[in-house]
Amino acid sequence: MRPVNPASRGSLLEVEDLSVVFRQRGRADVRAVDGVSFSVSPGETVGLVGESGCGKSVTSLAIMGLLPKRGVRVEGGVSFDGTDLLSLPPDKLRLLRGRDLAIVFQDPMTSLNPVVPIGTQVTEVLTRHRGLSNGEAREEAADLLRRVGIPDPSRRLREYPHQLSGGMRQRALIAAALACRPRLLIADEPTTALDVTIQAQILELLKTLVAESGTALILITHDLGVVAGTCDTVHVMYGGRIVERAPRHELFAEPRHPYTGGLLASVPRLDQPRGVRLQPIEGSPRDVIPWARGCAFAPRCPNRVEECTPVAPELLGDRHGLRCVNPLRSDQPATKAVPR
C-alpha cells in the first residue's frame, strides 16, 4: 500500500510511482528510479536531494519526457494539471514544453547552442509558443534578460554563448526558460558549475521568481546548504527511491533517516566550531544492494539491524515520510561533536 501524499491538494504536478528502467544488452536492467511519488503546488519549491546516481536527474528527465525511447522503460504516472504527460503524443508534449514546463540544466555551455546568438535562442521560444513577431520577441527577450540581471541586454542578445561568463550564461538560460512564464520550472543543479557569489545571485533570482509569479519549482541538488535556504519540502533520494521526505525545517531539525543524518554530519559547516571531526558515511554510493534484497543503504548504514534485509522498508508517514526500520532517535544527534 502506498501512503497518500499529503501535499496533493491543489497540486500542479503529481508524480505517482514513477520508475525508469534502463535496459542493457547482455546485462541486468538498471532501475535508476524506483517508485518515486511526489507533488508540487504552484508557488512551492520542492527539493530533490541526493548524491550522484541516486536518480534525481533521471526523475526530472522522465517528467519532461526527455529520455530516449529506445532501451528505456518509464512506468507510473506523471500528471501535470490533470494531463498525463507520459501518454501524451510527442507533438502535444512539445507544445507544453517551453510554454508550461521548462528545465534548466547544470552546465549552461552544453545546453546553449554555441553557434547561435543568445537572442535567437531566447526569442525562438517566444515566436514559437506565444506567436510573437520577430520584433516583439526581441523586445520581450531584452526585457527578460534585464529581469534576470543581465546588463546591456540588447547588446548581449547579439552575442554568442562563449562571449558570456558562466554566470551570465546560466542567467541567459534561465531567461529562455522563463520566456513563456512556465507554470513548472525544473532546475537541475542550476548553480553547481558556478562560483558561490554567483550561486547566491542565481538562487535569489529563482526565489524572487517563485514568489512573484507563483511558478512551481523543482530544485535538484546535492547541496544541503542550497536546499536549506530555498525549498519548502525536501525529498532525499538514495538508490532511486525517496528515503525521507519532510518540510524543510523539520528535516534539518530532526533528520530521521540515517542517510540524511549522515549527509548532514559529513559536511563541514561554516558556522560550526573547528576541531569537530567530520562524521563520514562509510563506503561509497557504489555499495548499494538492489531494493529487492533489502534497504539499498544497509551496506553503509551505521544503524543497520537484521530487519533491514531482505525486505526493503516502505516509505511511511504523511507529513514526515520515512523509509527505515531503525531510524535515528531524537537523542542521537546527526552531527555528533567528537573532539579531535
Partner: peptide, 9 residues
C-alpha cells in the same frame, strides 16, 4: 554567499 545547511540560520 556560502549556504549553511540549516534553515533557521
Amino acid at each position: 554567499a556560502i549556504p549553511i545547511p540549516d534553515p533557521e540560520v
